[in-house]
Design a protein around this nucleic acid. Sequence first.
DNA 1: AATCTTATGTACGATCATCGACATAATGCT
DNA 2: AGCATTATGTCGATGATCGTACATAAGATT
Lengths: 408, 408
Amino acid sequence: MGSPQETTGRQGFGPGRVLGLITSRQAQTRTAIAEVTGLARSTIVQRLDALFEAGLILETDERRPSKGRPSQVLQLNPAAGLIVALDVGEERTRIAVSDLGLRIITERIELLPVGDGPEVILSRITTAIREMIQTAGLADRPIAGIGIGLPAPVDYEAGQVAGWSIMSGWDGYDIRSHLRGEYEAAILIDNDVNLLTLAEHRRYWPDVPHLLYIKAGNGIGSGMIVDRRINRGAQGAAGDIGHAHIRGYGDPLCRCGNLGCLEALVGGWAIARDLHPGQDSGGHGAREIAALVERGDTAALAALRAGGRVLGEAVAYATSLLNPNVIVIGGALATAGDHLVAGVRELIYQRSLPLATRQLRIGPTRFKSRAGIAGAAYLVLDHALDPDNLDQALAQGRHPFRVGVAGS
Amino acid sequence: MGSPQETTGRQGFGPGRVLGLITSRQAQTRTAIAEVTGLARSTIVQRLDALFEAGLILETDERRPSKGRPSQVLQLNPAAGLIVALDVGEERTRIAVSDLGLRIITERIELLPVGDGPEVILSRITTAIREMIQTAGLADRPIAGIGIGLPAPVDYEAGQVAGWSIMSGWDGYDIRSHLRGEYEAAILIDNDVNLLTLAEHRRYWPDVPHLLYIKAGNGIGSGMIVDRRINRGAQGAAGDIGHAHIRGYGDPLCRCGNLGCLEALVGGWAIARDLHPGQDSGGHGAREIAALVERGDTAALAALRAGGRVLGEAVAYATSLLNPNVIVIGGALATAGDHLVAGVRELIYQRSLPLATRQLRIGPTRFKSRAGIAGAAYLVLDHALDPDNLDQALAQGRHPFRVGVAGS
DNA sequence: AATCTTATGTACGATCATCGACATAATGCT
DNA sequence: AGCATTATGTCGATGATCGTACATAAGATT
C-alpha cells in the first residue's frame, strides 16, 4: 500500500477530468476518484466542491457498501442544464428537450419542408423550442447546448451546410448567427448520419474504437467512428457513399443525374422502382418497402435480400479499408426484418479478409425512431462536458454552459 | 497590448509542449514562445532550462533580426539521440541510423528473406545495427527509439504481426521482447504502408488533416491519415485493400487464392502477366513494368494507364468514404512515369462527388527510395517527442529516451 | 451494545509553479 | 559614438496546489 511513483503519470486532473471519471463511471466515489487519479483525497474534495458549486454533480441516494462506512456515489446532476436536440429531416423536424441524463422531457415533431429555406425554418424551430420550454416550466434552467442534425454535408467547425444537397438554399448559411440571437448556448451542427453513428457508438458500443454505420433508407449514407472519434473528412463529406459508382449492376439512372450510383441500386426508392416498374412511389420507397415486408410480401423480401448483397459489396470494401470492430446498419430498410442485414453479412464474410472479419460484429441498429435526436444530444453532452471547456469556464468563474468566446 | 483573458485557454504547457512549439516551428525564440503560450517569459526559461539540461535543445547560429537585440533561434538538438529505422521487405531489409533531425548517418541494406523467421532475421538485424553504430563511432549516443516497418498487418499496441501475410512464422511473435534484451529504447512496429503514409504526411503535407496514401507496387495497399493521425483499424488491418474484390473486370485468379482481387487486376505482377501471358516474371512484375516504361514501351504504358483507371475505381470509392484533402500515390508503378496517376485522376474526377473533389489534390509521391525508412524514423520521432512521455520522463528525472515502464 | 473498519470533513503546513521587476546584452538607427 | 529598442538572465514574492494529520460519520462485525 502506498508504493512510491504510483501516480497515473499524467498530471493535470482538473475538475473537468474528474467529472469525466464520474460520468464515465470509472470512479464514482470520492475515495475511488482519489485512487484512480493518484491525487490526495483532499485535492479531490476541492475539485468536487467546484463541481458542486457549479451545480454539475449530485450525491446519489445510492451507497456502495463496504466493510466500514459506505461510500457516497456521485452523479452528474441531470438537472444542471437542458439539451435541445434537433433532427431535421427533409419534411419533418423532430425537436426534443432533454436533461443531461439524456432523458427526454418534451418532444415534438414539426412539419417543416427544408426547401422553405433556413430563415423560415429556423425561425419556426426557435418558436417551437421556446414554447416547449415554457410549457414544460423549464425556463429557468440553463441550456447546455443545441445539437442539430441536417440531411446534408456539414462543415462542423463552421456550422454550415457545406455543399450541394436536398437542402438547397442552406449552403453557406450561418445557422449559428441566426440562433445566437436567441440563445447564448453552444450550437453544434452536424450531418444527420454522423449523429446516428455517434448515438450508436455512445449508447451501445462505447468501448469500441472503430465503428462503421450504414444508413439504408431512401438514400444510402454512412458514418464512421475512428479511434473513438467521428471522422468527418476534409469538407464534412466523409461517409457520403450514396453516390459512389458500383460496377456490374447495369448502371441505372440515379436521382442525382449520374448512372449506377449505390443509391440507385439499393436505395429505398430504387428497390421500390424495381418492384413495380412504371409506378411512382412518391419518393417514399423505403417506407413502402418496410410496409410490404411487414405484410410478408415475398417479392419485397427477396428484393431486400438482394439489395443487401449489393450493399454488402460496398460495405465489404469499406471494411477492408477501415477495419472496424463493429458495423451497424440502420435506416428504414435495415429495420424491416433481418433481410437486408442478412444480405450484407453474407457478402462481407464472403469477401473481406479473414483478419478483418474474424472479430467483426455486424447487426442492425437497436434504436427505434429517436436515434437522430439521441445523436444530437450526445454531441451537445460531449461538448458541454469536455474537460478543457469546463476547466476554462470554472477557472474564469463563468457558467460552464454560457458560451465563452465566439467559439462553438 | 496585454488585454485580459488572452490566455491560450488550455493550460498545462510543460516542457514537452514547449519543445513541440520549437520542432513544429510555431515559435522558436524565447519571447515568441512566451507570446504563443501566454506564459511569462521567466516561466518559459524554466522550461527551456529543463530541455537544455536534458540536452534536447540547442541555440542555433541563426538570429532573428529585430529593431533591438536579435532573438536566438532555438532548435531540437539533432545529436540528442539516434533513431534506428528499419524497412523490412520480403527479401531485403533497409537499416538506417539517423539523428533526430532525420539526417541519415549510416545506412545499409541486408539480404534477409523474411521467410527465415523472426529469430534469425532479428538476430542478424541486431548484429548489423551494432556494427553500424560502432563503425560510425556513435556508441555513446542514446537511442531514441527503433522504428520497424513490416510488410504485414501489425497490431501496433502489441508490437506484433497480426495475421496472415507473407511473413509466415511472425504471427504473434514478440518482437519487442527479442530486441528489449539488446536495447532499452522504445521499439515501435507498424505496417510498412502505414509508415509510407506517415512519411508522406509529415514530410510533405504536415498541415493537412486527412490524407489517403495508395501504394501501387507489386501488391496494392493503402494507408490513411484521419484527423492528423494514422488510422490503423481494429486489428491493424486498415488500408488492406489489395484483396478487396472489384467487380466487372473478369475476376482473374489472385495469388491469395481468391478471384477478382484489386491486386490481381492492377498489382505489378498482374499487369506483367497481362503484358506477356504465359511467361513468369519471377514475382517482380512492378520492377519489370517500370523498366519497360523507362524504355518507352507503348504496351506497358497503355497497360499502366488502364490499370490506373481500375485502381481509380477503388480510390474513388475510398474518396467518397473518407473525403481526404490529399491523395498520394506511391509504389513502383506510381513513379514509373505519370501514367498510373493520370489514370487514377481521370476516374476520380469523373466518379467522386464534386464536394469531395473540388479541393482534392492527387499526385505521385515525391520520395525516392527512402520513404519506408523516413516513416519509421518519424514514428520514433513522434513517440520520443510526445509531450506526455517527455514531461513524465523529465519530471521523474529519467532520461527521456530510456524506456519508462514496460510500455512501448 | 461495543468495537472495528472504511468513508468522509477539515485544517494546517510544505511545496511548487508562476509571475513581475530589475539588470544586462546585442543590435539598429541617428 | 550614443541612443533607442528589443531580447535575454536572474531573483524574490505570491498564490495555488497538494499532502499529512486528526476528527467525525456510518455501517459491518462480534
